[in-house]
Design a protein around this nucleic acid. Structure first.
Lengths: 156, 156
DNA sequence: TTGAGGTAGATGCAAACGCATGAACATCAG
DNA sequence: CTGATGTTCATGCGTTTGCATCTACCTCAA
């Protein structure tokens, strides 16, 4: 990897970070969330994308939260009747998480309003840029297998 | 705004969110951070980008953290000798925040290692995509003035 | 079949966070 | 000059988070 390519990569990542922070703040300031925090909405949204119940660790892939924090967040949402926990018949350790009717309704209600704000914020991009961003995000999120396996031992 | 454009905008934003979460997790798992949390590094990095001391609220624009949380994070970094707080002579309310020598050194040490990981993660993109991402991020972060000023009153 | 090692999720606890609010200063109309 | 309003940062307090660890279960070689 050349130095200029590394510099460009870091500039691109910083740009993504800045945009993420700026838009997250803008969205958080919108009066659309009702009694859901953005993180809670994130969990409900992730569940709403899947027809099948999700395992906790599957949720954890999408939500930027530690496993214990996610476990307790799911706790609270279950106590509030928005999520249903069920034991996984195929794996005695696991749980199957699904939206309840109330949870789905809450996700739809908030999600509809949030989508409007997202569309407004992203509207500064051209259609072409939106397509580019979607493609770039997909490539970045795709797990790259460790090209240098000895990185594992490089731990402190 | 057409419905298809809104859908594309939301897909693009979700793609950005997913990439952000995936890469943040990957970076957090790297054994490069020493005694700095990623948020602490973020603050040190932001300060390192500016020659002049920063005000707390200026830091807050870049760091995704509430003002009280940022105030206390700065507290801790100052106690550890990485940041210097000084009263702002031009504004009795404000503080001027700057890296100490130790803070700059810590930022450089961790930043150098982190940049390698960033470059590796972003290397899945072509040069052209890196440029696109940088441009897109810049456009998204640029504050769009409220096109519909009556949104202010639409608060609950 | 068994037991060693791995994985999924829950829990104790200290640290950190967000919300509401306070204190100090700045600004500006009258 | 003065008081009303806005801004900047700090602090009290209840909630949430992360780290370390625990329990329960799964997997698989011997």
């Amino acid at each position: 990897m050349t130095a200029s390519r590394s510099r460009r990569a870091n500039a691109a990542w910083e740009s993504l970070l800045t945009a993420h922070a700026a838009l997250m703040k803008r969205f958080a300031a919108e009066p659309i969330w009702g009694e859901l925090s953005m993180r809670e909405y994130d969990v409900l949204y992730t569940l709403s994308k899947h027809a099948e119940p999700l395992r906790l660790y599957e949720l954890g892939r999408d939500v930027l939260l530690s496993q214990p924090a996610l476990s307790r967040l799911v706790d609270r949402l279950a106590e509030r009747g928005l999520i249903e926990r069920a034991a996984d018949p195929a794996d005695g350790r696991g749980v199957r998480l699904a939206l309840t009717a109330a949870g789905r309704e809450a996700q739809r209600r908030v999600g509809g309003r949030h989508a409007v704000d997202v569309a407004r914020a992203v509207a500064v991009l051209t259609d072409e840029e939106m397509r580019q961003l979607e493609a770039i995000g997909r490539k970045l999120a795709a797990r790259t297998e460790p090209s240098t396996p000895d990185r594992q031992e490089a731990s402190r």
